[in-house]
Amino acid sequence: MTNPLQRRPKQDGRHTPNLWPVWLVAPGALLLVGATAFGLYHGAELLLSSETTGKKPVGVQDVIKTTVTVLTLIGAVLAALYAYRKQLLDEGTSHRADSTQLTERYTKAAEQLGHEQAAVRLAGVYAMARLADDWPEQRQVCVDVLCAYLRMPYETETTAPAFRHGEREVRLTIIRTIRDHLQYPTTTNTWCGHNLDFTGATFDGGDFGGSNFSGGAVDFNSSTFSSGEVFFSGSTFSGGAVDFSGSTFSGGEVDFSSSTYSGGEIDFSSSTYISGNSRYTNGKVSFLVSAFSGSRVFFGGSAFFGGEVDFRGSTYTSGTVEFGDSQVLSTATVHWGPFPPIPVNHP
């Protein structure tokens, strides 16, 4: 049973101030004012009488005058409190209006992302990113929508029935937008620390270079890097979990060179590295001049069937880098680099 003396519970998504019910506050205020007036009257009478001992007795009018003056001051304070309460209500109305506007912007941006024309979908990408900047409370939701777009089925062959003209540019724009918001972790509109879910996505290009994957969960599990160039060069992987497990690197080039791995866990286990298709016959994954310090990096169970994987020039100061149970066929070239005496397992 609801307690009538309790204030209204705060509801998620609402901006109405958490105030006492009026039917409870009004009688209480009247009783408080009556008791205060009664006390002030007798208090003023006693005070004035004590100050005029041996003199002319204090008149009733003087007592009433003093009491009215004090009550006027109290009334001014109550009026100020009422004005403050009204301001809170007005602010709540304003916040609700802002929330409604933001919700309408979200709906419109989502509709644009589902449009048939690529130009409209591009406008939806920018609208959703701008909304994420303006709506910190729902920023993760906006980021989730953009990531979900990349997870949708994607046909790269121009002759396939499901191929959509302009789709590649839309997807590259989403990647650039995410990268731009991962450059500076301390800015107010940063997306660092938010979850990024690219599970099962297909990448035929894109630039994540210089991103700060710090905090949150970044999931490229079972994703496919099929062609083109995908850059993670100069990125920082610090804290949180980054999952590339089960990914397929089947063509083009994926560049992790000059990246820094410090803290957290980066999982490349059970990934497959094979030679590219007819257009990209020399698939390559580069970890050239990367720095591994204090992190756990797993390549265990990966299969290197072709192309080239390069770890040369990398430094390993602490943490764990594991290649246990990996398979390297003669058609693949793996440059292991000078591993130091830390917990590193490789074939």
Rank of each mutant, 00 (worst) to 15 (best):
T190D: 01
T190S: 03
C192V: 00
G193Y: 01
G193D: 02
H194C: 00
H194R: 02
N195Q: 12
N195F: 02
N195G: 13
N195V: 07
L196N: 02
L196F: 05
D197V: 05
F198E: 07
F198D: 07
T199S: 10
A201G: 08
T202L: 13
D204S: 07
D204I: 07
G206I: 00
D207W: 00
D207G: 00
F208I: 04
G209P: 02
G209A: 05
G210A: 05
F213Y: 07
G215K: 08
A217L: 15
A217I: 13
D219S: 10
N221P: 04
S222Q: 14
S222R: 15
S223C: 06
F225E: 01
G228C: 03
V230S: 03
V230Y: 00
F231K: 08
F232M: 02
S233W: 04
S238A: 13
S238Q: 12
S238M: 12
G239R: 09
G240V: 10
G240P: 15
A241K: 14
D243W: 15
G246V: 13
G246W: 11
S247T: 14
F249W: 07
S250I: 13
G251L: 04
E253P: 06
E253L: 03
E253Y: 02
V254P: 02
V254G: 01
S258N: 14
S259C: 11
S262I: 09
S262E: 08
S262R: 11
G263C: 07
G263D: 07
I266S: 05
D267L: 06
S269L: 06
S270G: 05
S271I: 09
S271M: 06
T272C: 08
Y273G: 04
Y273S: 05
Y273W: 15
I274L: 12
I274Q: 13
S278C: 06
T281V: 12
N282V: 13
G283V: 04
V285D: 03
V285N: 05
S286A: 13
S286L: 15
F287N: 10
F287L: 09
L288S: 07
V289D: 13
V289T: 13
S290K: 09
A291P: 06
A291D: 08
